[in-house]
Nucleic acid binder design. Structure first.
Lengths: 227, 227
DNA sequence: CCGGATCCTTATAGATACTG
DNA sequence: CAGTATCTATAAGGATCCGG
């Protein structure tokens, strides 16, 4: 927040806080829970230590995130969103839904497993299948990354890294790319299982429902620009 | 869009397109309709011609806005959002709702009449008063700026600069600051009228409903940070 | 190792002047 | 009016180094 727009507009204020390069991506990396400096550096290829350090300080000062010392024996420092920082969720949702429809600049490049799972949350449509509602817990492994997901009465109420104490209703083991293809409807669930690129056990019906509900509205290759 | 984050994440793509300084504020200025270069320069105090020019070119190239020549006799060039650019509305809404709750950095400074009217739209809550629904048109003058607003069955369906062919149900003439005080519940409508800081004619009941529905959730002076 | 700070280079923004 | 051109000041990128 070095240079301010100096306006009384809440949008300008948000941009004063989040508008510098890398700032919003640093926040994005904290959406699934707290992370260490090293995790952030790794998740943001291209960021330099000096910039990451400045952003963390600035975002801490403005109340978006907080730094905390984990108790011994871990004793490491982690960064986590404040409750106000967590309220950026609608901003991410809006940006993701907008970006995915980009008609000129193509969406290309690598995407992290975290982002794939967050995309599931972003495009989760609880209105799917005529409000059919279900409740289930999922443990999803994408390569080496484990996620825990809980749907309650058709609403995605929980998505975290790691596992939970309880046993999940569905256990999925797959790769990031195979999971993306299934979510993007490029490959039906059963076909991925037959091809052994996706391994699933438990309530397969609940898994199919999740995939149906999280399907995104096609990434508009042909959505024309209205000049 | 010079430097790209080079990610396949739709959020990163959105930031590639909108993340440079001033870019999103340029777009903000087009939310109420097309504007000329000069209007933008005036509405964005501090922007330099070189930066404005670069942003306009870049936003045009990426499909956010378009440049068009108005037909003679006007024959001037104006900038307008493409339909995809107009889909940024949820992003602005989310950013404004978030920024207004900033717990550390205060919301201070000047705000344009346009932004005041857009704030009305952002905080418009169609659920107000137990879904009571109404239909009305409003012509609102804030100092020298005229706006036209239409509510249909409790939904804000139209907000533009200028006027319409038809006569409005309500006509309001006031200053930007007086209007802000009335919207912010610092001054009741009737008191502002008595003090002659606000002049209104027509369906005053519809005016009161508009004010009730657009009231924002207090700007959290005391909303504490959860460390 | 982890969590940065430092130094140098390059790119972008700010300021001001000027032109078709 | 709608921008370019030029110059200066910041901030970001890249590489290396340092203390716990």
């Amino acid at each position: 927040m070095a240079r301010s727009y100096g306006e009384g507009c809440p949008i300008a204020l948000s941009l004063d806080i989040l508008g510098e390069r890398w700032a919003l991506l640093v926040v994005r990396e904290l959406r699934l829970g707290s992370r260490r400096y090293r995790d952030l550096e790794e998740a943001l290829p291209g960021i330099t230590p000096a910039v990451l350090s400045r952003r963390l300080r600035s975002l801490e000062e403005t109340g978006v995130l907080s730094r905390r010392q984990l108790p011994p024996p871990a004793s490491v420092q982690v960064y986590a969103l404040t409750s106000w920082g967590a309220e950026l969720e609608p901003v991410f949702q809006a940006l993701a839904r907008w970006g995915v429809r980009s008609p000129v600049v193509p969406l290309a490049g690598e995407i992290s497993a975290d982002s794939v799972m967050l995309g599931l949350r972003t495009f989760f449509n609880s209105e799917h299948r005529g409000r059919e509602s279900w409740t289930a817990t999922y443990s999803i492994w994408l390569d080496r990354n484990q996620y825990w997901l809980r749907i309650e009465e058709g609403l995605l109420v929980d998505l975290i890294r790691g596992s939970s104490a309880e046993d999940p209703d569905v256990l999925v083991r797959t790769s990031k790319t195979a999971w993306q293809e299934v979510l993007g409807r490029k490959q039906p669930l059963l076909r991925a299982m037959a091809a052994e690129t996706l391994e699933a056990s438990g309530d397969l019906d609940a898994l199919q429902r999740l995939i149906d509900a999280a399907g995104r509205p096609a990434t508009s290759e042909q959505s024309l620009l209205d000049s």
